[in-house]
Amino acid sequence: MNIIACVKQVPDTEAQIKVKADGSGIEEGQIKWVMNPYDEYGVEEALRLKEKNGGDVTIVSLGPARAMETIRTALAMGADKAVHICDPAFDNADAFVVGNALAAVIKTLPHDIILCGQRAIDDDAGQVGAMLAEALNLPQLTLVTKLDFAGSSVKVIRPIEGAQLLIETSLPCVVTAQKGLNEPRYASLPGIMKAKKKPVDVKNAAALGIATEAKAKVAKTIPPPARAAGKIICGEDPVQKAAELGRLLREEAKAI
């Protein structure tokens, strides 16, 4: 089975995000970079598919030079090899460009199933899986919490508002992982040592032959709207405080 897992390096969820004074992006100086948590589920599922059915796992990642660290993490978890799309031409790429860049690489590799995180926790766009699927003309299964592989097809569980769907799709296909799909493993020490020797093919934009101009541009990055200081309801008696809270929510906030 030829399995592809796409990964992105993102700021850790603990990171404080500071907007640059000129609104051109965020301050990256203090940030600790990690693998996008949703991509971890994708990598883990890829490894489980390989362990059960044989084959190999290829990691594909688009990002600056520092993203190599995240690629090595995926290799240390057990993936076999990787392609790193690395070019300053992609610095302002949107999901359309990223999807097409990943597709350009994946087209050249044998692929039965492609796993991505359902969204990256930096730009929160959640578009790349679908963009990639369209570029490869494959079916997409987004937000998957359970995946069963059965020869030439997969059956997945996909939660929607107030229900979950059981969907079957033929291979090859693109699956985007939601939390709940699995519990990602940690890289072992021998895994980390082995990862250093695994092959990583670095490609630039010219090698892919695709347009790098974003369709959707972040014209400006702004801090979140400030919230006015709140009211702390004082007193000794929890009963009285609850009554006052109820009154304020009804009369002042009109929230009840």
Binding site: A216, K217, I222
Partner: peptide, 15 residues
């Protein structure tokens, strides 16, 4: 739109 789960916002323009 919120980015980084609302830690900052982006103004998006599409050409």
């Amino acid at each position: 739109r919120p980015m980084y789960a609302g830690k900052c916002f982006g103004e998006i323009v599409t050409n």
